[in-house]
Design a protein around this nucleic acid. Structure first.
Lengths: 332, 332
DNA sequence: AATGGCCATGTAAACGCTATCACCTGTCCT
DNA sequence: AGGACAGGTGATAGCGTTTACATGGCCATT
């Protein structure tokens, strides 16, 4: 089951078998045929660990995401994987579920695997970990977190602009009492996701917002919406941190007999496929996951190859998408 | 960045460092402390490839799924991963997207990685591949495909019973013209998924069914439903191969102004979380993904350990779940 | 004081590959 | 005829670990 046995059977040296395996074209056709035959007869599968060890290089890129359950992350993963395959790379994925111990474990794992590049599409990242990654020398792309460094490239979405577009629109429809549904990963005094909402709200006279947070799932969205509805005055619009939670909110409203958008408007974020399929279809903001995926791959593969790609930081401007879940504030 | 450097720095041999890394308790506390210090100072991360090579064992289990986009697969993955972590194993996932070349590549990859166990949750599997896996000696669990062998365990869902329950119910509500929405992976003369539908239909006098197939996605469901609606007489009920496609179908009906369930009933399969959150909530059949995940892990981890678990084949009986997407046939 | 054991550690041989270098044939030149 | 050269192949030294096996203290036993 190893090179040597194949070599013996094909009556060549292990070096030659290795050449055949790696498509080095120097092997004579007849020899190659003998080797291939031996490989098949023995059902030989090269040991990837040995290969990586000996070769020193990895042809694998790692990707760490916060919550694969949210199609947003999967969409990115999918385009990264497909780009990577084209370039002859594999990608191994790790899901942290927003747990920071899991993040640490995943990063260590990826370093241990000596991946050729690492994409971290996660919402939180401690400085110590960033340090660890910097020192590892592995090319890294962060999405939405951290700052550019030596071997670290950043891709971020102008979340603030997206929120502004949503709030502008809702304000223009007469909404004055807003609710914001976020997820737990964004708790804390001043959060990347909540702050823009608060700031946008502050720009308009008479505009108010209350926030609630829960898990980044359908159920979480539902629960957060319920919390909003149960505490204080009913908002006329609920702004959600992403589409999944918005779909959860939609259900809570429906079951309470609150009509969307007649009684309450709801907005999502990301423009995940599901946002078109839920009822009513979500007004949301489009984040181009495919672009993000391509950017990640280009960066990682270019770095592991020759020169650095464009810049160390790129920001994406999201686009407003109007659908059926929003309408004029009631009584207007 | 390797064992030797750490050893040098801690003034011990590489063997001792290795012992520290592997928690062998024979190391004197003071020595251990020195080594740990050196490891941290050097930010040393053991090379997993070298480890696997030298150790011969892998502590990684592989999982291959057809379509990670469908939450059904993700749910299984998630419980497998969590069980595996508890046992100190990693899991690497591969997504085939229903492409058989990709399946072949993924299997080869897993064998190359010398995984400690492999879960194949895919819809098609050529005999040659099964052969390859058998020979590899890796413990394998198949979901819904193949037959038990030497090192192969099977888990299957009694799909037929699930379908029977759905069709019985629809028939009792007066439905006589059915539509079936399937996905491409199940094309071909007699299919595992279509056959039970045809058989069930054949049992009832006056019951008819037309089928359509498309991709296993929200869009696919929508398109397949459209095909059903556009060709021939409008069915009074649409049975879908899974929840995702059913949600797609729901949208198509909604946009055509066809009311569910007043005009047309719709059923799903799997009882994915989304089936509660779509509108109307889907009548479906529950497949316990967590049970499947546990079964997979138990089997794989037990095998790689000591004795074999229970049997070589286990079948799961799905449960009918009544919600709002089904009702009496129109005019009855 | 010599013997035996047991702990803690060191030495070195795998593990299965890749990659460098050396070697051997022939060809083709001069 | 004698080299230079190139294409094809073999030998072998790593790659970074783990894991026997060997070694050396040190204490308890006789």
């Amino acid at each position: 089951m190893n090179l040597e046995q194949v070599a013996r059977r094909a009556k060549v040296s292990t070096a030659t078998v290795s050449r055949v395996l790696n498509n080095a074209s120097v092997v004579k056709t007849s020899t190659r045929a003998r080797v291939v035959k031996a490989i098949e007869e023995l059902k030989y599968h090269p040991n990837l660990h040995a290969r990586n060890l000996a070769g020193g290089k990895s042809r694998t890129i790692g990707m760490i995401v916060s919550n694969m359950e949210n199609p947003f992350f999967f969409d990115i993963y999918k385009t990264v994987e497909s780009d990577a395959h084209v370039a002859g790379f594999e990608v191994v994925m790790a899901n942290t579920d927003y747990r920071s111990e899991q993040l640490v474990a995943s990063i260590r794992l990826m370093i241990g695997r000596r991946v050729a590049g690492l994409a971290a599409v996660v919402s939180e990242m401690e400085p110590a970990l960033i340090e660890e990654l910097t020192d590892s020398g592995i090319p890294v792309v962060f999405y939405d977190v951290g700052t550019p460094r030596q071997n670290i490239t950043n891709i971020r979405v102008d979340y603030r602009r997206g929120i502004d577009k949503i709030i502008d629109y809702l304000y223009s429809l007469g909404h004055r009492k807003l609710g914001f549904v976020g997820h737990h990963a964004m708790l804390g005094p001043i959060n990347e996701r909540v702050k823009p909402v608060l700031d946008a709200v502050a720009r308009y006279p008479g505009l108010e917002v209350r926030t609630a947070a829960d898990a980044d799932t359908l159920d979480g969205g539902r629960l957060a919406a319920r919390a909003l509805l149960l505490s204080g005055e009913q908002p006329t619009a609920i702004v959600c941190v992403n589409d999944i939670m918005a779909v959860g909110a939609l259900r809570e409203l429906r079951e309470r007999g609150i009509r969307v958008p007649q009684d309450v408007s709801v907005t999502g974020f990301d423009n995940v496929k599901l946002s078109e399929f839920c009822y009513p279809a979500l007004t949301t903001v489009h984040i181009p996951r495919d672009t993000i995926g391509h950017l990640i791959c280009d960066t990682l593969l270019a770095k592991s190859g020759k020169t650095a790609v464009a810049d160390h930081e790129m920001v994406i401007d999201p686009e407003f998408v109007l659908r059926d879940s929003t309408g004029p504030a009631p009584g207007r």
